[in-house]
Design a binder for these strands. Structure first.
Length: 470
RNA sequence: GGCGGGGUAGCUUAGUUGGUUAAAGCGCUGGCUUCAUAAACCAGAGAUUCGUGGGUUCGAUCCCCACCCCCGCUACCA
């Protein structure tokens, strides 16, 4: 019985929640629920990342103040809680007063440690786009959108973080904690990146150019660059820096992030923590991307999967099921409506749903009263979840479902009478109770219905849990 | 270009300290059955044999070399 802190990354609120974030947060939710189930005290955090240039520009475009703009978006993200039946305890917004103070405090501490300095920063600026361009964005040294224009070189005074100083410490971190990053190959990837060489990164923006951010302490001309600010949310969510007691009880915690976030979460953020004299994260789980029909989702291809739409069409539990059972833990995954419906019919309607109806009907027909009994979540399911292999945990549960169907057929339970019938039915009810118990972290609503149906002593035919799709 | 991940039945994947007939689920076909959501259960077909071409070996999906394809990162948009 310990304390367990888990946080998702905070999605940037310039577009609707996408299926990738739905995967991240449903997995975090399942992990949090497993810990609660075995008696841990859990703090599960999520929220929204709301500063930065893109949001500032979008807000201007929409003729809104940035604050209004992000308020609307944050509300949309909070709708996920109900849509996906999430059990997070805290929703932090990087525009929260408390968070802003924390983002300034970590800056002060890094600076006090000598890791923040001001220097000229040269950037390439496209006059056509009115935007800074990074080298990786350029094609043949030109802006791909304005290939005839020359890029302007602009100088700007920026604050930089002495990332390079932490190369050795980071490598030590990876070496001393072999399971710091899951899966292992991501740890090797980042280790190689860090070992190659680290360049200090800019952590501020000139306010005149981009005012939508956290003020840099003691320098009103600059705001913190959004990464520096957003990463701090993982600890400001715990009341840091004021509430040292709470922070000390929960941190270090576990993080979950997409593979595009590898560097930020497992190197930059860890270096920031080191600089501020704080413990590094306990573990970071890095997941893959989601494609649709073998291709990257894109508006132009028209293959974007909207998690909210899927919830409206198929239900919360079905979406959670697909995410947890069918998405690969560590590699990229794929989803299409066809695959989704196939899995729904095969596993939820014909498998779980049918079995629940089948057994509950038999018990009702037999008029059998069953003793109440609490089951314990199976160790294997917990182990699989701890290793982030939710798909394998689900496979274990579905093996029980299949096994139960096989047993019913082999014993022809519906034909039995008397004691034989009674023994067989009690066995089936226990199996369903176990399945319901094991499903709690993953399909909480369905699990609740199953446990209620088979609670005893009287058992009635269950409602249809997952109507078959045509 | 560099680094990393992947390329195994229609689909999703498992699998290697190299070894007889390459595994599972879904889908498909047939059978059986009726307690159940026309579901379940049983059986079967299905990989020109594991991206391509070489090599090492008595023997390679698994080792080596070269190449092809897909994806991500390549640092200050997030």
């Amino acid at each position: 019985m310990g304390k367990f802190y888990i946080t998702t990354t905070l999605p940037y609120v310039n577009s609707s929640p996408h299926i990738g974030f739905a995967m991240e947060i449903v997995r975090a939710d399942a992990m949090a629920r497993v810990h609660r189930l075995i008696g841990d005290e859990v703090f599960f955090n999520t929220g929204t990342d709301e500063h930065g240039q893109k949001i500032y520009q979008e807000a201007l475009k929409a003729n809104q103040t940035p604050q209004n703009y992000v308020d609307e978006w944050a509300a949309k993200f909070e709708l996920l809680k109900k849509a996906l039946n999430l059990s997070y305890d805290n929703f932090i917004r990087t525009t929260d007063e408390h968070h802003i103070k924390a983002a300034q405090e970590i800056w002060r501490r890094c600076k006090a440690n000598g890791d923040i300095y001001k220097t000229k920063y040269q950037m390439k600026y496209c006059i056509g786009c009115e935007l800074e361009k990074t080298d990786s964005e350029l094609v043949g040294g030109k802006c791909p959108l304005h290939p005839k224009m020359e890029l302007e070189i602009r100088d700007e005074e920026n604050y930089f973080f002495r990332f390079s100083k932490y190369q050795r410490w980071l490598i030590d971190l990876y070496d001393s904690q072999p399971d710091f990053i899951v899966p292992r190959f991501r740890q090797e990837e980042i280790k190689e990146f860090v070992a190659k060489s680290l360049t200090d990164f800019s952590i501020s923006r000139l306010k005149t150019r981009m005012p939508w951010g956290v003020d840099v302490p003691d320098d009103p001309d600059h705001v913190e660059y959004v990464w520096f600010d957003a990463l701090t949310s993982y600890i400001s969510a715990l009341g840091w820096p004021e509430d040292e007691k709470k922070f000390g009880e929960w941190w270090p915690g576990i993080q979950i992030a997409g593979k595009d976030n590898l560097r930020q979460q497992t190197a930059m953020w860890q270096a920031m923590l080191m600089s501020a004299g704080l413990p590094t994260s306990k573990q970071v789980f890095v997941e893959g991307f989601i494609n649709s029909g073998g291709q990257k989702m894109s508006k132009s291809l028209g293959n974007v999967i909207d998690p909210i739409e899927y919830v409206e069409k198929y239900g919360t539990e079905a979406v959670r099921y697909y995410i947890l059972a069918k998405f690969s833990s560590f590699e990229d995954s794929d989803i299409t409506a066809e695959k989704f419906e196939e899995a729904y019919n095969a596993d939820l309607a014909n498998g779980l749903g049918n079995l629940v109806a089948r057994v509950s009907t038999m018990v009702e027909n037999a008029g059998l009263a069953v003793e109440e009994k609490d089951m314990k979540v199976s160790d294997q399911v917990v182990t699989m979840t701890y290793g982030w292999t939710f798909d394998e945990a689900m496979t274990l549960i579905w093996e029980d479902i299949k096994k139960t169907d096989t047993v019913i057929n082999e014993k022809q339970v519906w034909k039995l009478t008397g004691d034989k019938q009674k023994v067989a039915l009690i066995d089936l009810v226990d199996r369903l109770r176990q399945i319901g118990t094991d499903l709690q972290p993953f399909l909480p609503e369905t699990a609740g219905k199953i446990l209620k149906t088979f609670a005893g002593p009287t058992i009635k035919k269950s409602e249809i849990l997952f109507p078959r799709l045509k």
